[in-house]
Structures are given as C-alpha cells and as structure tokens.
Design a binder for these strands. Sequence first.
DNA 1: CATAAAATGTAAACTAGTTAACATTCTTGG
DNA 2: CCAAGAATGTTAACTAGTTTACATTTTATG
Lengths: 239, 239
Amino acid sequence: MSFIFNFGIPGLMEVLPADMRARFDALGVEKRYQDKQHIQSRGDQTKGFSVIKSGAVCFGKTDKEGRFITTAVLEAGQCYGEFTVFGGLPRTHDGYAEGPTVISHLSKTKFDQLLLDEPALAAPIISLLTVRLHHMLEWVDDLRRYPLRYRLGKNLLLMVKGMEDSLIAATQSELADLMGVSRVAVAQALADYKRSGFVATEYGGLRLLDKEGLRSWLRQFETIDPVVPATPLFTDAAL
Amino acid sequence: MSFIFNFGIPGLMEVLPADMRARFDALGVEKRYQDKQHIQSRGDQTKGFSVIKSGAVCFGKTDKEGRFITTAVLEAGQCYGEFTVFGGLPRTHDGYAEGPTVISHLSKTKFDQLLLDEPALAAPIISLLTVRLHHMLEWVDDLRRYPLRYRLGKNLLLMVKGMEDSLIAATQSELADLMGVSRVAVAQALADYKRSGFVATEYGGLRLLDKEGLRSWLRQFETIDPVVPATPLFTDAAL
DNA sequence: CATAAAATGTAAACTAGTTAACATTCTTGG
DNA sequence: CCAAGAATGTTAACTAGTTTACATTTTATG
C-alpha cells in the first residue's frame, strides 16, 4: 500500500547519480525491521535522514484514544527525515514497518557532512521537496473541490498507471486510510463504480475493468483544466 | 488576509543574510501591481522565482464556472515560483495582487545562475521548502482530524500570536476562504465562540476577548499531544 | 446625506460524509 | 479441512458541512 508521496513520485535514490547513491550507502547504517515493527515515535529527538532500501514504512499519529491515523506510507526508494535534518524538529510522526523492511539511517551529523562534501546533492533534494510540496497542494485542493467518488477514482487510475494488469492489491480499509475517509465511504464509492462496470472488487483488492470509462466519467466532476508539465517533473534540476 | 504559508513562517528574505538579499534585489526586476491586478495565470510558461517586496498575492484556481478558489495568500517577504524553477512546471495557480503590491521577478535563467554563484543559497531554500511541506502535512492532518470549530479557533489564535491588540482584520468570507469552508460555516463557528465569550465580531473583523479561554476550550478536541521543536524551525540549517 | 455596496446573522433544506452494527464471503493456519 | 480471522457488502441513524435565501447592519460614495 502507499500514499501521497508514492504515486508518480520517484524516490531520491532513483534520481541520484550512481556515485552519490554509493556514498549514501557507505555512510548509512542499515537496519532491518519485521512487519509491524516500530521504527520511530512522534516526539523522538533522534535526528537523521533515512532511505528505505526495501519494504515500506507507514507514518501517522496515534491519538489519545490509541487510534492510529495514517499520514503517509513511503515505499522503497523514498527517503524521510527532512523535518529533523532541515527543520530542527523532533520526529513528527510515529512510524512502523509494513512488511519486512530495510532502512539505511544517516545521523544528522553525517548527513550534514555529506551535504558539505557534495554540494551537488542540494539540487535533487530541492527537487524532491518541491515535488512533494506541489503534490500536497494539489491534494488539499482536490480535498476542497471534489467528493470522494471523484478523488478515489482519480487515485485508482494513478495507481494502475504503467501497470499492465490493472489489479490494485489494497484492501478497502487501506484505500480508506489512503483517502482519509471511512471504509464504508470507500465501499459505497466502489459500489457505484461497480454498477457502472468500471471496476470489479475481489477479496483483498480490485481490478480496473474500464479505465477509459472511469476516466471520462470522472471528467464530469472536473471544474478546472489540468496543467501538464512542459518538462517532466524531476529532471536534473539545472542548478 | 493570509493563509497557510504566512502564520509563523518567516519569508525567504527575512532569513537570508544581507549580502544575499542585495544580490536578489540587484538581479530581480521590480514590478508594481494595483489592487486586484492580474499577475499570472495557471498554465503560463513564464518560469522564474519571485519575491514579494510589499503587499500580498492571492493564489488560487478559477474553475470552469468561473468561480475562484483561493489556495494561498502570500504576503511581503514571501517568495514563490519554486514549482516553475525546480519542478519544470508551468504556473500552477492564477495569481492577483491584494492591495498595491511590488514584486521582484527573477527569470529562471538568472535564478539558476545565482544559485550556481551562491551555493550557500541552497540551505535557506531547502529550509523554506521543508517548513512549508511540514506546514502542509499538519494542515491536511488537522483537516482529517478536527471539525471546523476547532481548526478555526486554532488559526485565530495563531493569527493574533505576537499581536498586542488581538484584532483580526479579516471578513468572514476571507476567513472562510482561508479555512476552505463556506461563509455560513464560519459564521456559525464564530457564533459559538461569541456565546462562550471568546470573541466579539465586528464589521470587517473580529476581536479575541479571551485567548486563554478559547485555548483551553480547544483542548477538549485535541486527540494528540503537540510536538514542540527542540530547536526553532528555520535556524541557519547547518549545511 | 442618501443610497448603494459590502458584510453580518440566521434559517431551512440538502448532501456527503460519519459510526455502529451485522450478515456474508473468502483465506489461512493448525 | 474446518475454525477463526479478515475482508466485503449493506443498512440505519447521525453530523458537519453545503447552498440558497433573506433580513439587518455597517461602510463607502456620488
């Protein structure tokens, strides 16, 4: 499962030149986590930058009643910890492993040193932050503008983009988490889609049967024309 | 009026050393705008980085029915254009001046050159993006977690922080825009606050009468403990 | 200073979400 | 292979927001 920062957003490691990646690997301390294993707590003062080598990490906050609300799930290739390194903040989220996960941790000290040694690292980091910020703005905007049955459809299409089989392996609870709504709301939206023949649900997932149909059905909601990048996001930002 | 990126977030210019600020001023082309004057349109290919010298800029998107939905209002000291410069995107929002406004525009070419000449500029930019991203995450989180009468109160308190008079000069429509809800919803929340004696509304603004009372009333909603920065955000990020 | 424009206050009908509950179906581990 | 757990499907009552409407108050303007 995944969230905001995964769809169509390449990870830092993917855009970094090989030699830089190697330096990350050399400096970082790899740590293994089992499924569900706790990684960090909101409020921790452990400052550093981390790269997910494999698996995924679920970030969120546990409220006083003990209920966990997911903020984002980052998958392999993605990094996190900017807030502690660049913002001087303690950990802002609880985090635990989703599936067996390997993470390479760099302390703030080491990371700062790396950035001093390699000023070329700044560009990809700025790019990464920019893309995430842009993504968030769009997300908030959609949240205000469109109902769930638009947003869910849009994100389902995003999820299968570039996949040949159109099978989304996420439970409805996970999709609900993803969209920040209740499971019932997701089930109802999916029931709608099913009636129109856009999707077929199955245990533990669903299949997009008619992407084009869904796409054009969604267009009825769209109140603004989408902006398409002139150059793709995340080119080697000419710094 | 202001939005997400103003409360408690210093502008780029405020954190930049004097010499760097001077370089910005030297390279940029200053342009004056009258109240309500159009500055940019979503989709424009004009790429560059801009600094608001005085006044404010309202960003948003106009939907097909012609209705404008505000995304953010940036005030003097704030900058924008990261998406065009670092993300290779066309302008993602429509923008117009709020009040007489002066903006210093740097073309992408000039800005790229400036960054090459001044690698030290990377740190404050990274910091800025980080702070904004963090703010957005918190915003989305609050959106999911809390009802309007919590979020509005929280933001009213944020707005008067550091002010001695506790007068907020924003119409209810502006507050509604700010919170991404209808004017009626804001009026109802304010009516609640009034009944409790926390605020007094007046034409074109409102006054916080009992900050401490409001603060403690808000606490009843809070489901997680706030995280406080160990070191303040936006220190000269030790790069 | 009279009138228009802007802002506030409030009610009513509606809608898209919520939680709770429960029956059903599917999968997996002993 | 069957029992337990997990996931789905669906209903019902509720709630926090929406839009529309309109009366009232305040400010700005010719």
